[in-house]
Nucleic acid binder design. Structure first.
Length: 480
DNA sequence: TGAAATGTTGGGGCG
DNA sequence: ACGCCCCAACATTTC
């Protein structure tokens, strides 16, 4: 029998516009489709709980798609390198094809594969996860960009002419039986309790779901993106993040679809595609600074006097801070595995600056609860809010949760959706219930402190404390 | 991809 | 008519 090609699926769980898969199929040899769940490494960033839910369904969909091509997906649990070596020896394969990734663990692994396997098999690595490779965009000195705008401009100088590839119509099946786990073996879905119950009604993981989501976005919201993207009470964002994270759709497919739609902007000016470049930028940062998820990019922040209050952190996690816009966001996250981006900034600012809790703690919570948890985006965004990242917001830019609420959820629709106990409060007080006159509270059937918490901190005092803490950090820097 | 404090201006009430 | 005060509206600076 012909020796097969191993196609190693990673976070490219799609058949269309998948250069690596296409190349594997085009060898004309039988293709062994493989997915490895690797929990063996020591990285603290093993896949989070909400992402496991997504992964389960995404793999399940991929298996359905492959079945139509008369092929199965071989599931293996274990150390990626060992499992790859194992399957190569089981099949006698002489080629290994895959898509590259940019996390420190992935970079290390790809280097090791290159060293250890290259003498025995052909190792072919393809791009596809980003619009621009980290090596491809740099300053005139050859340094990686640390500031977004020049990075963005440099990206726009690059040619964007690629046409997305169609899914292979057929592939040569590898007919020998290979041992495979079942998805159920991996127990990726939560049970007792099934906290992901309402994920099903919010999401449709997999390639088809990704394209349906894109279609809905192109249908209208993309043209109002600039105005509506900050409104959590309106469906104005693409909600493509989890699909992009798992590679169910390529950024190139989105880029091209937008270019070909009747979008009001050209892609180089589109406020939405600009966000896609932020995604590249985050991966660029992580690629060049592998400690980004753990350590502040601005070193002086290592001396920041964070508070370690488990109790406060828990109030934040459970959506019980007493600030409705913050609590609504945290509850949306818990219920759906996702949070509107404007609200992510608000809750992050609140944790970091009002509660003075380290951004790493917030990042860890997001990592576990977001279906779109992505190491590059998550760490770059948290550091951005904290003011310690590359090209970050200044630390002293402290969001006022009441003003943010009034501005971006002016009728309290978003708050009422996620905090139904406040539903009857008049618009005027929806973002600051504690300011409500007693009689109106009574009419609304709300008793603060029992139905809904009183604010766990006073924002104006918290703001002063935050600025004082920054001062303390600066003094520490001076003295050292 | 803020917010608060502080400064400036100008209209109107009023003695 | 005039100066004075108040304060909203807007601008600037500071954090």
């Amino acid at each position: 029998m012909e020796t097969p090609v191993i196609y190693w699926f990673r976070r490219d769980l799609r058949l269309s516009d998948n250069s690596a898969l296409n190349a594997a199929v085009n060898t004309g040899r039988p293709v062994v489709c493989l997915y490895i769940l690797d929990e063996s490494h020591s990285s603290p960033w093993r896949i989070g709980s909400a992402s496991r839910w997504w992964l389960h369904h995404s793999l399940s969909r991929l298996m359905q798609q492959l079945r139509k091509l008369n092929t199965s997906l071989v599931l293996r649990l274990g150390d990626s390198k060992k499992e790859l070596e194992r399957i190569i020896s089981e099949t006698g394969a002489q080629s290994l094809y895959f898509t590259r990734h940019y996390e420190p663990e992935s970079i290390k692994l790809e280097q090791e594969l290159n060293h250890r396997l290259k003498s025995k098999v052909e190792v072919k690595r393809y791009k596809g996860y980003l619009l621009h490779e980290p090596e491809q965009v740099h300053t005139l000195n050859g340094e990686p960009y640390k500031v977004f705008t020049p990075y963005y401009k440099a990206c726009m100088q690059q040619p964007h002419t690629h046409t997305p590839l169609k899914a292979p119509k057929s592939l040569k099946t590898y007919s020998n039986n290979l041992a495979s786990d079942t998805l159920a073996d991996w127990q990726l879905l939560p049970t007792n309790p099934n906290w992901a119950e309402s994920f099903d009604s919010n999401w449709n993981p997999g390639e088809a779901g990704a394209h349906a989501m894109l279609h809905d976005f192109l249908n209208e919201p993309v043209n109002q993106y600039e105005d509506l993207r900050n409104r959590p009470d309106i469906a104005g964002t693409s909600r493509l993040s989890p699909h992009l994270h798992f590679g169910e759709i390529s950024p190139r497919q989105i880029w091209t679809a937008i270019e070909q739609s009747d979008h009001h902007y050209s892609n180089s000016e589109s406020p939405y595609t600009r966000q896609l470049i932020w995604r590249d930028f985050s991966h660029n940062l992580l690629f060049h600074w592998p400690h980004f998820p753990e350590q502040p990019f601005k070193k002086e922040f290592a001396a920041f006097p964070w508070r370690r209050s488990k109790k406060m952190l828990q109030c934040w996690q459970r959506g019980k801070t007493g600030y409705p816009i913050v609590d609504a966001g945290m509850r949306e996250l818990w219920v759906t595995g996702w949070m509107h981006n404007r609200v992510r900034m608000i809750v992050a600012s609140f944790l970091i600056k009002d509660l003075l809790i380290a951004w790493q703690d917030g990042q860890a919570w997001f990592w576990d609860t977001l279906v779109d948890a992505n190491l590059a985006n998550n760490s770059a965004s948290w550091q951005w809010v904290a003011g310690c990242g590359a090209d970050a917001a200044p630390y002293f830019r402290i969001f006022n949760p009441i003003l943010q609420g009034n501005k971006f959820d002016p009728h309290g629709t978003y708050v009422r959706k996620w905090i139904p106990e406040l539903a009857k409060l008049p618009d005027k007080f929806i973002h600051a219930p504690w300011q409500t006159p007693e009689s109106i509270l009574k009419d609304s059937g709300i008793k603060l402190g029992s139905h809904y918490p009183l604010p766990i901190v006073d924002h104006s005092i918290a703001r002063q404390n935050a600025l004082a803490a920054l001062d303390k950090m600066k003094k520490h820097k001076k003295n050292s």
